[in-house]
Design a protein around this nucleic acid. Structure first.
Lengths: 193, 193
DNA sequence: CAATCAAGTAAGTACCCGCTTGCAGTCGGG
DNA sequence: CCCGACTGCAAGCGGGTACTTACTTGATTG
C-alpha cells in the first residue's frame, strides 16, 4: 500500500512543478522511484493517475473553521488568517499550476471544493454571524467582504514568493496589517479588556 | 510588417490558452495563418518567438495612473479600480497561464513589469499621497493597504470566470462594495458635497 | 526585363511522448 | 514446492515535437 501512495505523491509533485503536459510518465516514475510500467499497471493511464493524485493530494478541503459563536472578531480573524494563509502558501505551486490549466482542462480540477473556495465560504458564514450578533456594522456587505479578505490572502500566498519586491514584509507582519485594515472596514466593536 | 504582428498575436493567444508546452509551432502557425517555417525564419526558435510575444502582447504595463493631487479618494479609487479590474480581467488567461509556469520558467516573464505589479505600485504611491494630505487615517499601513486592495482586484479578475458560485454579483456591484470596504478601512474623510 | 527577396511547400532528422508487450526475478501462502 | 501475484527490465510502436534543408512561387524593384 505504500507504493501506491508514493506514486500519487510523486505525480502531484511533478504536476505542481510542470503541469499536465510537463508531468510525463517517465518523470513521475523516476520521482517515485518505480518503473514506468508500474504506473500503467496501477492506474491504467496518465490521465487517471493524475486525476487520482489531484483528488487525494492537497486539493481537498482543509481545516478552515471559524468559531460558531464569535467573541473576539479581531483575534479570531487573525488566527484563522494565519492558518489559511499557511495552508494556501504550502500549496501555492499546485494552486498556481492548476489555475493556469483550468481553462484547458476544466473537468480535471474540482474547483468548487478547492481550499480557497472552502475557506471563503467559511469566512462568509462567519461574517454573517458577526453581523447578526451585532459585532460589525450593518453597512458591510458580508459577501463582498469575504471575497475581499479571501482575495487578499489568496493573492499574497500565491504571489509572495515570486514578487519579492512587492512583499518586503514577512508574512506575519503583512497578515497582522491585513487584519487591522479588514477589522476597520467591518467596523468591528473591540471587546473591552 | 503586418505579418510579424499577426504571428506575435497568435503566439500570445496560443500561449495563453495552452502554456509553453502546449503552444506548438504548428498551432501558432495555423492560428496566424502562415507556414510553420516562416516562424523560424522570423524568430529563429519557438522560445525566442514566445519571449518576444510576451514582452509585446499584453504583459507590458497598462494605464494605471491615479491623480497626483487627490481630491475625492472614494471617487478616484472607484474609477481606478474599474479600469484596473477591466484590464486584469481582459488579460486573465495570459496571467493565469504565466503564473502557472513562473516557477518552471522564471526568466521567461518579466514579473516586475507585469500589469498587477505596476498597478500595485501606482496604488501604493497614491495612498502615500492620501496620507500626507491627511485624507486618510494615519494608522493605516499604505503598503499593506495597497497589497490588500490590489490582491482583492487581482483575485476577483483572475478567478471570477471559473468560480461562478463565488462571484454571484456582477463586477460593477462587487467593485463598488470593495471600494466601500476599502474606504472605510482607510478611514477616508468624505468630502462635503 | 532581370534580379531579389519574402513566403509557401514538401520532405526529412533526431528526439520525446503515452502506452504495450514479453520475459525474468522474487516474494508469501496453500 | 509450486503457484500466482507483483515488480523490474528491455524493447518497441505510432505519433507528435522543434527545427532543417532544398526547391518553388510570386511580387517588388532596379
Amino acid at each position: 500500500m505504500e507504493l501506491r501512495e508514493r506514486i500519487l505523491k510523486a505525480a502531484a509533485d511533478v504536476y505542481a512543478a510542470s503541469g499536465f503536459r510537463g508531468a510525463t510518465t517517465r518523470r513521475i516514475a523516476e520521482q517515485a522511484g518505480v518503473n514506468e510500467v508500474t504506473l500503467f499497471r496501477h492506474f491504467g493511464s496518465k490521465t487517471r493517475l493524475l486525476q487520482e493524485a489531484m483528488s487525494c493530494a492537497g486539493f481537498a478541503s482543509a481545516h478552515c473553521e471559524l468559531p460558531l459563536t464569535p467573541v473576539d472578531p479581531r483575534a479570531e480573524l487573525a488566527e484563522w488568517a494565519g492558518r489559511t494563509h499557511a495552508d494556501l502558501f504550502a500549496k501555492r505551486s499546485l494552486i498556481r499550476t492548476a489555475m493556469g490549466e483550468i481553462e484547458e482542462r476544466p473537468d480535471f480540477l474540482l474547483t468548487e471544493h478547492s481550499p480557497p473556495v472552502c475557506a471563503g465560504q467559511a469566512l462568509h458564514a462567519y461574517l454573517e454571524r458577526l453581523k447578526t450578533a451585532g459585532l460589525i456594522t450593518a453597512e458591510a456587505d458580508c459577501r463582498a467582504a469575504a471575497a475581499m479578505f479571501m482575495g487578499t490572502l489568496f493573492a499574497d500566498a500565491v504571489t509572495r514568493d515570486v514578487l519579492a519586491s512587492v512583499f518586503a514584509d514577512p508574512p506575519e507582519t503583512s497578515l497582522k496589517r491585513y487584519v487591522d485594515l479588514f477589522v476597520r472596514a467591518l467596523g468591528v466593536e473591540e471587546p473591552t479588556p
